[in-house]
Amino acid sequence: MMGGPSDGYDSAAASHRALHSIKQELRRHPIVVETRGFPAGEFVEVVADLAIERWGVDSHNATLTVRWFAGETEDARPEFSFHYSDTERDLGWHHHEQEHVDGWGHFQKRTSTEEYSYEAYTFPSKNPARLVWDVMARLSSEVE
């Protein structure tokens, strides 16, 4: 069959598909209570409420916020972030241009009211669906 899958790259459509896939995978994860596009109606990011007590962690307002932009061209690197927060923690795995460490991939964690610490991080994949499960496993290790 022709007229196939890549005749016209649309970065917004590709980004929306990625966000949709991320939302679907988050819904399948056992500690995710609810997912929603945010802001309501706009859907530029996905927000998931997490029941981290299922990991034996006592905290409140546990939320994962995911942004994804597929890149201006088909070959461009995607820009994305998986950022977690609860009443005590504020941390995340990000992939975008920044000035703190070499490369795009990094892990950042709030160390005080105004500051984050940064370390380089290499993502095992750039596929949004697969990354959801990788990040959730890392998050489990980070908060437990």
Partner: peptide, 14 residues
């Protein structure tokens, strides 16, 4: 099947 569908529908290039 779920994983194949999720991965394949989220690729930004074929």
């Amino acid at each position: 099947f779920d994983r194949i569908q999720s991965v394949a529908t989220a690729v930004s290039q074929p």
